[in-house]
Computed example of a mutant assay.
Amino acid sequence: MRAAERGFTLTELMVVLVILGILASAIVFVMPDPRGRLIDEGEVFAACAHAAQEAAIVEMRDTALWVSPAGYGFERHDGETWRPIGRPPFQDRQWPADTAVTIAQEDGERTRIVFDATGLNDPLDVILARDENRVSVAIGADGTIDVSG
């Protein structure tokens, strides 16, 4: 048999393995985290809080945001009691299972802030943490909402 018909050389096999390794590495780095990004969760929370604030101003009715380590939701005062809103974007939401939540103004199982018709509210600071990442969502007394992390 001739030398050219015996198979691949070691150099050719090594080149193919290096190329496959580079491609596999590129795919791993491009794939998104299946848990989602923590900053995205903080921004969704901030957007929902802002929508509740605007709803309170437009409808001239007190709207509350409650937050707990398990999730958050929205309520509206009907003159007698607080009732869940339940319609998008105000349905109750759960934090992802691997996200630790710290509430600076924690007062019991749930912490509630109320947006009134003027857009003012009590301040609220929520810190989301996952692995080494931390995102802070600060709702100021003047209604400003800041997401940092």
Rank of each mutant, 00 (worst) to 15 (best):
E54I: 12
R35A: 15
A51S: 12
L20K: 08
A52V: 11
P32L: 01
A51P: 03
V16H: 05
E41W: 01
V15P: 05
D62V: 04
I57E: 06
V30R: 10
D62P: 03
V30Y: 12
V30A: 09
I22R: 10
A26V: 05
V44H: 00
V15H: 07
L23M: 11
E41C: 13
E43P: 07
M31D: 11
C48T: 03
C48L: 15
V18N: 04
A46I: 01
V15K: 06
V15S: 09
R61T: 07
I22W: 07
C48E: 03
H50T: 07
E43A: 09
F29S: 00
F29D: 01
E41A: 15
T63W: 02
A26I: 05
H50N: 11
L20Q: 08
V16Q: 02
F29P: 02
T63P: 02
D40F: 14
E54A: 14
V28W: 15
H50Q: 12
I57R: 10
D40S: 15
V30C: 02
E54G: 13
R37L: 14
R37Y: 12
A24D: 08
A56P: 01
H50C: 14
A46W: 00
A56T: 00
I57S: 06
R37Q: 15
V18R: 03
A52C: 12
A24R: 11
L38K: 13
V16M: 03
D62K: 03
P34G: 13
D40E: 14
L20C: 08
P32T: 07
V16R: 06
I57F: 15
G36S: 07
A49E: 04
R61K: 06
E54S: 14
L23T: 11
V30Q: 12
I27M: 08
I39R: 12
A56M: 01
A26E: 07
S25V: 01
V30W: 13
I22E: 13
P34A: 11
E43W: 03
T63C: 10
D33R: 12
R37S: 15
C48K: 01
C48F: 09
V28F: 13
C48P: 00
H50M: 15
G42C: 00
V58D: 06
G21T: 06
A47D: 02
A52F: 09
I39H: 07
E41P: 09
I19F: 11
F45S: 09
I39E: 13
D33N: 11
L20Y: 05
P34Q: 15
V16A: 01
S25L: 07
G42A: 01
G42N: 02
I22C: 11
I27F: 04
D62S: 04
E59Q: 10
A47Q: 04
C48A: 08
E59N: 09
E43V: 08
I22M: 14
V15D: 09
T63L: 13
F29I: 00
R61F: 08
G36M: 00
E41F: 05
A46R: 03
M31A: 10
A24T: 14
Q53W: 03
H50W: 07
M60S: 06
D33M: 05
A51Q: 05
V30K: 10
E59A: 05
E54T: 12
I27D: 04
I19P: 07
A52R: 00
A47N: 01
